[in-house]
Design a protein around this nucleic acid. Structure first.
Lengths: 336, 336
DNA sequence: ATTAATAATGCAATCGATTGCAATGCTATT
DNA sequence: AATAGCATTGCAATCGATTGCATTATTAAT
């Protein structure tokens, strides 16, 4: 049988309200009785029933987080950033992964909603094109923050990395190293991050006075094999480039493996830059130059934003998009 | 204002009990009224208040999971396995990471307890030596499953990979490939998995008639640098082995990078096997032979176990330890 | 000493869903 | 027609903490 505040009250011959207030450090309760109450609570092994309190106050002190996959380096960095701020502010974080499936994402969103999280931080899945499940939150003014994979269709604060800038830097770096014929392995252009990366790529080409060759641009699903297939196609058409900018590290990896296999020298014959700084990028041969996203900082920012929204119950309809700087890491796959 | 069962009841001029029962498909309610109730519930946009129900029934339908780090391949596989089974059984999963810190682990355990998870699945942190925070669960007969990093100090079902067997296979494989002087990079021997791996290593040596040379065994904290330092020491003492069995892939990676740097040929001069099949193991040069743990299966098994314990409220004190098979993956770091 | 003002505590309703038991309605049997 | 028996539905308490308002205790002021 669990101890409740009523048990403590009975023990001390006072009322449950006083116990409740004392345990919550309400200054209206005198110092002495507060101490007495805390002492007996401790002695009796009292454990507050969070469910009861949450039910009553309609606040769970919990932030929900949904990411496509928890074992991607970027996402787990974001999660760590969220946890950092959340714990410091007395919030609990509950993490779920959508596996890039809309149904699972919707299911999780509903569950989190049903469990009355105070706020939600989410990065959309690859396939997510309907946002009904987010209406649950926006309709009821439950703070919602989108990050990384975001959408215009939803009014919410958004936190994104500077994908455009990162892609621009990466491409510029390749050009500065002498590349002229640069291919791009991109993702679905319906997804903001891949669109921005492609735009950054094209902008850098333009600014360098290079023209964009559409036959050098491949938009796939960003698997290792997508990278390989793209290069195979280029090779078959005798259009092998002198550099490739990949919108993620996985395709860059595929390309490196393939090019090594067919005996092409990296980076001399073909230079490569990826995106996201996956852990493997540093350790393959050649190590992959890449764009680092400030995952931890983005997570911190996201958490700060939800928490401030949760606390200021002023429904802030002045939604902003925060762009955080990315950083080019030059490694052997592009070093001259 | 949220719709409650009372609103539905009022609307239909019936009692809230009937509504509650109908929505829960209690067969005692007639088909026709059940349909009417569900229809109006739908129309009115009713969303059950899970908190209220959980509070009343003392069941949250939630399983808590604590792992040291979510972005380790092994742990995220386990999590996926847990989710798989949990969702199929109508349970929600809430994931947290302890970052291998005892305090954080204890804090999370307390939070999960306070939030009344129905069961807990946990892999202990590196430093965890006190288990007070788990007493919360065991004392109150809340189902608790330990996996991978477990301890004798706690009575609970345990699920572990066959660390001994994996290490044995790995070592045997090295011996079969001609290695005679095999070094071992191990972890803290206070942790079951590292202890078993070392025992498996030694057993394989014994069975092959090789004697164990203690100066070839290094027990550190399993970082990349630990591996490097160990090899540096061996080299300084002129005791470079002809093979190394590492209790994780990270140290194996460190060693590979170092040995390549000083111009030693892998695997010809020194063969290497790691443990855990981290994603990078496949893509480094040379690719790392390793032991694969059945993470997904372990997760599934763990979830099945908690759920069955949650459902059979018979407090099962017949605690068992389930060992799941590991598998040797031979790659270039050890291939002759 | 009396009253006003403040401090400290208690009362009782409340949150929304669940559930044991009671009550009602209906059919079938004699 | 009366009653038994079953099928449905309703009543009301309950879970534990919170909180607006009321009440009591205490101190200060006149």
């Amino acid at each position: 049988m669990e101890i409740t505040i009523h048990d403590i009250a009975k023990q001390l011959n006072i009322s449950a309200s006083t116990v409740s207030r004392a345990l919550k450090n309400n200054p209206i309760i005198s110092e002495s009785t507060r101490k007495r109450i805390k002492k007996t609570a401790e002695e009796m092994g009292y454990r507050p029933n969070v469910l009861a309190a949450s039910f009553r106050t309609k606040k769970t002190n919990t932030i929900g987080v949904i990411v496509p996959l928890i074992n991607r380096h970027f996402f787990s960095s974001v999660i760590s950033g969220i946890e950092d701020i959340a714990y410091k502010n007395g919030f609990t974080v509950t993490i779920s992964q959508s596996n890039d499936k809309v149904e699972k994402e919707a299911k999780i969103a509903q569950t989190l909603f049903a469990n009355r999280v105070d706020g939600l931080i989410l990065s959309l899945g690859m396939e997510t094109k309907s946002f009904e499940h987010l209406k649950l939150f926006t309709d009821r003014k439950i703070p919602l923050i989108l990050f990384d994979r975001v959408t215009d269709k939803i009014d919410a604060h958004k936190i994104i990395a500077d994908d455009f800038g990162g892609a621009y830097q990466a491409t510029k770096h390749l050009i500065e190293n002498g590349a002229r014929k640069i291919a791009h392995i991109g993702g679905p252009q319906t997804i903001n991050i891949y669109k921005s990366r492609q735009e950054g790529f094209i902008a850098a080409l333009n600014d360098a006075g290079l023209k964009t060759d559409k036959s050098l641009i491949f938009n796939g699903t960003m698997t290792r094999n997508d990278g390989i297939e793209a290069l195979k196609t280029l090779r078959k058409n005798n259009k092998l480039p002198d550099a490739v900018f990949c919108a993620n590290d996985t395709t860059a990896l595929g390309i490196i493996i393939y090019l090594k296999e067919i005996g092409i020298k990296l980076p001399d014959e073909i230079a490569i830059v990826g995106f996201s700084n996956e852990p493997f990028s540093e350790v393959v041969t050649p190590s992959i130059s890449t764009i680092k996203q400030p995952g931890f900082l983005m997570g911190q920012k996201a958490a700060e934003l939800v928490i401030s929204q949760i606390n200021n119950k002023i429904s802030d309809t002045n939604f902003k998009t925060i762009t955080m700087p990315t950083q080019l890491i030059i490694r052997n796959s592009s070093k001259k």
